[in-house]
């Protein structure tokens, strides 16, 4: 049962990923990515990370991708079919296929040659997650707030209309 669920969800994730990079309409590609996010959240749950799974859904599927949707809609290209010649850089197509396939192949070969220990499992409940986050990683956590603040400043400053 567990392995059936894994293959089902993994298949969904890979399908969503392929659709994301190939679909003609930007909005549909975005929805395909949301499908991948949901599949990944299920895998995170299976790997004992419920907090990260929910944060993934809320932050990624909920906030980041909706922001993407806003920008796509703002430019009015969401529902338009991008013709094949404008969708991909034709000159890079072969090389990019080769690079990404060889990356997967290389990774697969490395995995075959290494002995991977059986999973020990963790319980990423909010309690245990928060304990480590606020004990061992307090400084990086505080620094992320600074990063987000700078991100807000940059976005406001960039998107502001020139007064001239």
């Amino acid at each position: 049962m567990g392995s059936f669920l894994f293959y089902l969800v993994a298949g969904t994730a890979v399908t969503g990923a392929f659709l994301t990079v190939t679909l003609a309409k930007p909005t549909r590609a975005l929805l395909a990515l949301i499908m991948t996010m949901f599949a990944l959240a299920v895998l995170y749950l299976k790997l004992g990370a419920p907090f990260v799974a929910m944060a993934n859904l809320i932050v990624y599927a909920g906030a980041v991708l909706v922001l993407f949707l806003f920008v796509i809609m703002l430019q009015g290209i969401g529902a338009k079919d991008i013709p094949l010649s404008k969708r991909f850089s034709q000159s890079h197509l072969l090389l990019a296929t080769l690079v990404s396939l060889s990356f997967t192949g290389l990774f697969w070969m490395i995995l075959k040659r290494t002995s991977i220990p059986a999973a020990q499992g963790v319980s990423g409940t909010i309690e245990s997650f928060a304990e480590i986050l606020f004990k061992n990683y307090l400084l990086p956590f505080e620094l992320t707030s600074l990063l987000l603040l700078v991100g807000v400043f940059a976005a406001v400053n960039l998107a502001k209309k020139d007064p001239s």
Partner: peptide, 23 residues
Amino acid sequence: LLLGAILFSTGLFGLLTRRSLLM
């Protein structure tokens, strides 16, 4: 781990070939 690698290289393919900045 293999699934992660497949997803990563799919994204890499998109990064290298798509022409729209949003994609």
